[in-house]
């Protein structure tokens, strides 16, 4: 395997690993549920995409054949990540999980729970 390709693979893998780590770090560190929701759904998805692209290049370079499973997994994760984030946010709102005190627009929460339009003054 030529060293340039090896370098590219390493870069993708490292980038992916760092983003996965950042996603989990955010999950641990951010102050309330709704802010926590942001880190894993995005950073982790992007991190995994990096890992998958890296491994795709590796198998393409080593085995000389296209392994496209990775593409399918990436696509699948890209489609499912927002759906599960949406469902989690919905579940949390209906469970009345408390948001951070300084969150703006908490007056909306009641309307959101009942799926009503926002109150008029907003």
């Amino acid at each position: 395997m030529p060293p340039v390709i090896e370098l590219i693979i390493c870069a993708f893998l490292l980038l992916g690993g760092i983003f996965v780590l950042l996603g989990s770090f955010g999950l641990l560190r951010l102050p309330d549920f709704f802010t926590r929701l942001h880190a894993p759904t995005k950073a982790t998805t992007l991190g995994l995409a990096g890992l998958l692209i890296g491994s795709m290049i590796y198998f393409f370079a080593v085995e000389q054949r296209l392994v496209v499973h990775e593409l399918l997994i990436t696509l699948f994760l890209l489609i499912t990540a927002p759906v599960s984030a949406h469902m989690l946010a919905k579940a949390a709102l209906h469970q009345k999980v408390r948001a951070l005190k300084r969150t703006q627009g908490q007056a909306l929460c009641n309307a959101v729970r009942k799926r009503q339009p926002p109150p008029a003054d907003n």
Binding site: F34, L37, H38, T41, K42, A43, T45, L78, A81, P82, A85, H86, A89, K90, L93, A111, V112, R115, Q116, P117, P118
Partner: peptide, 12 residues
């Protein structure tokens, strides 16, 4: 939801 900084939570 996918573009960072925002997550959609509910549709009226």
């Amino acid at each position: 939801s996918l573009t960072p900084g925002t997550v959609s939570a509910e549709v009226s």
